[in-house]
Design a protein around this nucleic acid. Structure first.
Lengths: 249, 249
DNA sequence: ACCTGAACACCGTTCAAGT
DNA sequence: ACCTGAACACCGTTCAAGT
């Protein structure tokens, strides 16, 4: 009655060593936190009870759907965030979701925008502006299971308004740096591709060994201090933008 | 009997204007080329005949499977590259594929490595080396329908050996530039995230308007000359790497 | 206006049984 | 060794019909 993937994960979590559990506490993944604080989540999930505890009969609203989807994401990951599963959590038929959202992509876009809710612009030097946006973005992505993957997909599909806004901020910053307007958009996208790529990679490793799986040799991006490594890439991009300006500032 | 998506596409292609058709010729998408050269492909597909014309009874080998998968990709895109559909093209049962490949990810990894078959190292200045790898990579991705998306997914899943090799070449180049070995890997990944992100974006736009769909305002990455814009980003990254070196070269 | 029920056309993966 | 047939447990989306 329970998906195989989930069952495997449950076994992995059950087999944790103390050292691995300590590692878990260091990561920002809400799913892991939820499991540690409320170990009954996995058990409740086995009965497929509603995570939200939402009562049938009450009318469905867009924010409710996004709420439930985000909870589903945090607890079970993007693979289990299906329209049918979501409908089950909300005690409605799958078709009901299509009254509120045109399709799955659009719904995922709304979840992406919810995840990015706290990312906002700072007023500072263009370098600090880029650095601040990158740091905020990474933090937001890391605070939800598979956050980077979900936002990355929504951005590629053009379904996230907040990502469009962030792109505009980065373009402004690149323009302020002295990059001509024709190329500022490419510079801004380069920054976003980096943050999304790096964080998706970091997060997948984080989640793998949060599940107790020992990965082979190559620690690559993670290694010692992911935040420092992340910052290195950000500085690389900022220096690159500075070098590519057409007019002096 | 034919997938809705495919039918829509067929209608779009059928309704092309001459101007749009000329645009098609300029793009590198093999699917479009195939349709223009062999307009019967779409019709043949309607009958779900084997694209390969492979005869039943002959034993299946890994390269055959990868061949068929690549053809399927070029003709119908990544959405139609399913294990079941592939099995149908090869006139075998879906289960047969699992004798040769552990799962779909692994098979897609093999397709990714096939796509990247012609990418190889050049011996030159580290700047030219990075530029050459980026250009080759982009060309390879653009020559297959959804190539960037497929390779990107395979890279993220750690299923492409060639991408691992390319990453090593880029890491070498960054080290040659003077970046310390701890950060050279991040620099190399930054370059790959850019190429994959930029090209996936470029390709999706390319394929959308190859299908005759008029996209809204924002031409962003594409705009006038994608190759020039792509080159701008590559130079940005190269300059960034140069600026981040710890020891002078 | 909002939702159900049921259908349509698919998925990836497994595995006993065949040759 | 290699493959079939059939099953298992799912998908996203549509749409007549209900309230």
């Amino acid at each position: 009655m329970v998906v195989g993937q989930l069952q495997d994960f449950e076994h992995l979590v059950a087999g944790q060593t103390l050292a691995a559990l300590e590692h878990l506490l260091a990561c920002q993944c809400q799913y892991v936190h939820r499991c540690l604080r409320h170990p009954d989540v996995l058990l409740r999930s086995a009965n497929l009870n509603s995570v939200q505890g939402s009562v049938p009969g009450v009318q469905l609203h867009k924010p409710d759907v996004v709420d439930a989807a985000t909870t589903l994401l945090d607890n079970y990951g993007i693979a289990d965030l299906s329209m049918r599963r979501l409908a089950k959590e909300l005690n409605v038929s799958p078709g009901a979701l299509y009254w509120h959202f045109a399709n799955k992509q659009q719904l995922l876009g709304a979840v992406a925008d919810r995840i990015l809710g706290n990312v906002d612009e700072v007023s500072a030097d263009w370098r600090d502006r880029i650095a601040a946006i990158c740091a905020q973005l990474r933090d937001a992505l890391l605070s939800h299971t598979d956050g980077a993957e979900l936002v990355s997909a929504s951005f590629a599909a053009g379904q996230s308004e907040v990502m469009a806004q962030i792109l505009a901020w980065l373009t402004d910053a690149a323009t302020a740096a002295g990059v001509d307007s024709g190329h500022a958009a490419v510079a801004a996208r380069t920054v976003l591709y980096y943050v999304l790529g790096f964080t998706a990679d970091e997060q997948s490793r984080l989640q793998w060994d949060a599940a107790g799986v020992d990965l082979p040799d190559e620690q690559s991006v993670l290694g010692a201090d992911p935040s420092r490594r992340f910052g290195f890439g950000v500085q690389l991009l900022i220096d690159g933008i500075a070098a590519r300006r057409t007019s002096p500032v």
